[in-house]
Design a protein around this nucleic acid. Structure first.
Lengths: 236, 236
DNA sequence: CGGCACGTTGAAGGGCTTCAAGCTCTGTGG
DNA sequence: CCACAGAGCTTGAAGCCCTTCAACGTGCCG
């Protein structure tokens, strides 16, 4: 079980803030474990509280009118989730779902409102985080608008490598997250069949090694080439 | 020519803030006119300053590796542009381009940094704006991931109606912006030909009236139906 | 060891892109 | 004032990337 203070110390959000402030946050914190597939909050609900991921992974998922699901963001330990809407009392922009068993710290939005007014540096810290997410979102919009599926999948895997990649010997990077074809499809606006075919092709080329809900990057450079380079979608 | 104080009063960002603060902002402000197609800042540049749109329209555009352009956001008078990255001194997430002759107020990022620390409410105000944009971006990601071109175009036109729509008699809404097929294509991740064909179909159904760089919504309800409803992409 | 979720592979088809050719406005200079 | 150039737009045709449907493996777990 994670320690609340420990999570805060390691989080970009709270690191180096006055101890008195951390005390007040820790005091207001609740702790809960979410199992895989459980939702911590629901798209459209009015946000009174927000989360910090203690351990595990969560994703922010949006539902379309015709029942599809789209993953718009992934969160790892230390990341705040739903923080801005909780400050304002607005609606959650998506549902928060645990990708695996996750320890979550639940905090009231109101407290944050007070703390920001007392300590503007905290506001700047939050701005920085939200700004980075907006940046990511814009990049994702560009990719979805203009790029082929294969390239989008390559990019998302490289992003995942940054977030949850574990480096092993020989430049091999294991993605430490349960990652089904369906998950990759939802992150890239495609179907599980297309992901399956793409991964199979990459596997034949020795670029990745893919198992059940699990992917390992063998040749990162080749993946970067696919993601960045300019070849008009030839099949591998 | 717009008055700086006037723009600030009407802007969501500054409205109701202390006069002393507005004074300091106005003092640091520069004024410049950008003609259609001119860029106010460039994707990837380090941000030292940010903008407020005084009059006209600007868009944030990203460039892909293979030379395509993608519009990720549109800004109208009162909107701040590049504000968060300017506070932090990070890189602009895209280039800011004038869609028509626009009066722009240019402000240093550093000043904002100081003001936030003196007056936390300003930070909250910025947070609110950025949060709304992130929300928009997530919605756009969902649409691009899971929805057909026709529906995306319908949605973007409804959004534009909110932003720059001028209501005329009989529920008719004129989009007050130079809007070419190419522009609509770049906002929706498609091609100008597809946009042309879609608009032509809608025109035949009497839903819109489209001219050279100009669109008017005749039947908003029908457009909402296309954007929200669940019909499997039948052609009009 | 059977059930079920995850994954693979094939085949068909369609929405969109791409390429191409020609049209129609709008502004401009002779 | 008119012609012309060029940007914006239309329309057709070809084709392909990707989705969709379908059937069948495969591995995990109770």
């Amino acid at each position: 079980m994670v320690e609340i203070r420990d999570v805060m110390r390691k989080s970009e959000l709270f690191a180096d803030l006055p101890v008195s402030m951390l005390d007040r946050v820790a005091e207001a914190a609740h702790y809960r474990v979410f199992e895989r597939g459980e939702l911590a909050f629901y798209q459209g609900d009015v946000a009174h509280s927000w989360l910090v991921v203690g351990s595990g992974r969560m994703r922010l998922v949006q539902h379309t009118v015709d029942g599809k699901e789209v993953t718009v963001a992934i969160f790892v330990p230390g990341d705040p989730v739903g923080i801005v809407v909780a400050i304002m009392g607005e609606e959650y922009p998506g549902s928060a779902e645990a990708l695996e068993t996750s320890e979550i710290i639940i905090l009231p939005g109101e407290l944050l409102w007070q703390l920001i007014h007392e300590h503007a540096a905290l506001g700047v810290r939050i701005l920085k985080i939200v700004s980075a997410r907006l940046h990511d979102a814009y990049n994702q919009i560009r990719e979805l608008s203009a790029e082929r599926v294969q390239r989008r999948i390559a990019r998302s895997m490289l992003r995942l490598a940054d977030k949850v990649g574990i480096k092993e010997s020989g430049g091999v990077i294991r993605l430490d997250i349960p990652l089904s074809r369906q998950d990759l499809a939802q992150m890239n606006g495609t179907t599980l069949e297309t992901v399956s075919r793409t991964l199979a092709a990459w596997e034949r080329s020795g670029i990745v090694s893919a198992g059940r809900e699990h992917v390992t990057i063998l040749k990162q450079d080749d993946l970067v080439t696919i993601a960045e380079d300019l070849f008009p979608a030839r099949s591998a």
